[in-house]
Design a protein around this nucleic acid. Structure first.
Length: 438
DNA sequence: TCTGGGGTCCTAGGACCC
DNA sequence: TCTGGGGTCCTAGGACCC
């Protein structure tokens, strides 16, 4: 029995797990025939989002366009993203890590944090494993079970675990005990740290801070005088303390729902833009109703060709997940904000102030009779959607947006024999018209 | 990377109240 | 009627993440 992880080196043992080229890895795991080939996902956007190592070697990088990819790598396989499948792999990843500890934060579709400090394997009276041994077991288990490699980082808190997992990719394994932290921060540009973006990087640069160690070796009073709370927390973690907790709630208690879409070409057509918003509201409402939730606020925006945003937030008289209610509240504001001569490239909506439907109340001033009527129609829509798929039935106000989508899909997929339109996309043509919402 | 879609958290400042 | 101090709540907007 060896216990190499002393409690001074690891007051807490926090691990970060990061999927290597996750989307592409999932595709290859499902279709092993793709292994060894240059594979890219992101067809639906027309740009590369994840690349296999072979694709990277061929010179393909994130954001590269389809035409350029084919030019530098004629045999590249370009796949549309299948988020549903990736989410399934993510859930399996979480459950594998949970075999080793209860404290797991599901951070994103291809990442999680885990606290190994109280892992049963570490605390067994006889034959306890070191944290490093446990982490190695987890890495092997993930690969054996999923056929996907993950890069693991083990350190004393979340920020340093992130540094560790990123240190050596793919299939990396990096352990950073408390005393070796400075070795890793010495040459690491401060902008590489999780939570420090371009804006903070520029700000810190003006103050003479270039490397992460420059920041970590400032004294507390300097941090108090020059930095906001998020940076102060990162600073603490860079010094080996643990201030960021793992959030183990899972991700089902989301605080907002957003739907946005960029369309090409840009449009100056008021009703077209409105139909886009209408479609987004419908989508977001379906999502909310599935979870028995309602919203009390909706914000919307129009993005102009010059990437200017016009938008605002509207409070609702009653918490609702009825698209017609939301659209009725938004329409007057939309009409005020919409500037006719401008060209728009995207619209979006966010529903927030979410409530559980159980505590939904109807205010004295809300039109409750109307709400009830809408609920009946919406319930019928949900039943049809459940039976025949989403997009079978939708509001008349969304019609133009859906037609535009269908054309866009046809355009995108033309010339790629492998890619067929999904059943869901084809169903957009089977319209039950419910009338205008204005 | 001239810019896709879906999120979270923090902060400053105004409104309102005592 | 004016003034001061302090608290809470809300909103807009920024910054960051994958």
């Amino acid at each position: 029995m060896t216990i190499r992880s002393s409690s001074t080196e690891f007051p807490r043992a926090i691990m970060h797990v990061d999927g290597d080229s996750f989307f592409v890895s999932c595709e290859i795991a499902r279709r092993p025939g793709l292994r060894g080939k240059p594979v890219v996902t992101g067809l639906e956007r027309g740009i590369a989002s994840a690349m296999s190592p072979e694709a990277k070697k061929a010179g393909i990088h994130r954001g590269m366009r389809i035409g350029d990819m084919r030019r530098v790598c004629p045999n590249v396989v370009i796949l549309p993203s299948d988020y549903t499948m990736y989410a399934q792999y993510a859930r399996r990843m979480y459950s594998i890590v949970r075999k080793y500890t209860d404290v797991v934060e599901e951070y994103s579709i291809d990442e999680c944090f885990a606290d190994l400090t109280h892992s049963p394997l570490a605390t067994t009276a006889t034959g306890a494993c070191s944290y490093e041994e446990i982490a190695r077991q987890i890495q092997a288990d993930l690969f054996d079970s999923l056929g996907i490699t993950f890069s693991l980082g083990l350190s004393v808190n979340k920020v340093m675990a992130k540094v560790a997992s990123k240190w050596n990719k793919p299939n990396g394994f990096t352990v950073i005990g408390r005393s070796s932290i400075p070795d890793y921060l010495k040459a690491l540009p401060v902008g590489k740290i999780w939570g420090i973006g371009s804006s903070t990087t520029m700000y810190l640069k003006k103050l003479g801070i270039e490397t992460t160690l420059d920041l970590a070796t400032k004294d507390h009073s300097w941090i108090d005088d020059h930095c906001d709370l998020p940076v102060a927390r990162i600073y603490e973690e860079l010094r080996g303390n643990k201030v960021l907790e793992l959030s183990t709630d899972g991700h089902d208690d989301y605080a907002s729902v957003q739907r946005t879409q960029t369309f090409r070409p840009p449009s100056g057509d008021r009703e077209f833009c409105w139909s886009q918003l209408s479609q987004h509201v419908e989508d977001a409402c379906i999502y909310l109703r599935k979870d028995m939730r309602t919203a009390t606020k909706v914000s919307f925006f129009l993005k102009t060709q010059d990437f200017e945003y016009l938008g605002e937030e509207v409070s609702l008289p009653d918490a609702t997940a009825e698209p017609q209610e939301l659209l009725r509240a938004v329409r007057p504001r939309f009409d005020v904000l919409f500037v006719p001569r401008l060209q728009y490239r995207a619209t979006g909506i966010t529903l927030h102030g979410l409530r559980s439907r159980k505590i939904r109340t109807v205010s004295l001033f809300g039109d409750s009779a109307h709400l009830e009527k809408a609920s009946g129609v919406t319930r019928a829509i949900d039943r049809l959607a459940e039976k025949f798929g989403r997009g079978v039935v939708f509001l008349g106000s969304s019609l133009r947006a859906l037609r535009h989508d269908a054309r866009e899909d046809a355009r995108l997929h033309a010339g790629h024999g492998r890619i067929r339109m999904s059943t869901e996309q084809r169903k957009h043509f089977d319209v039950i018209y419910l009338g205008e919402v204005r």
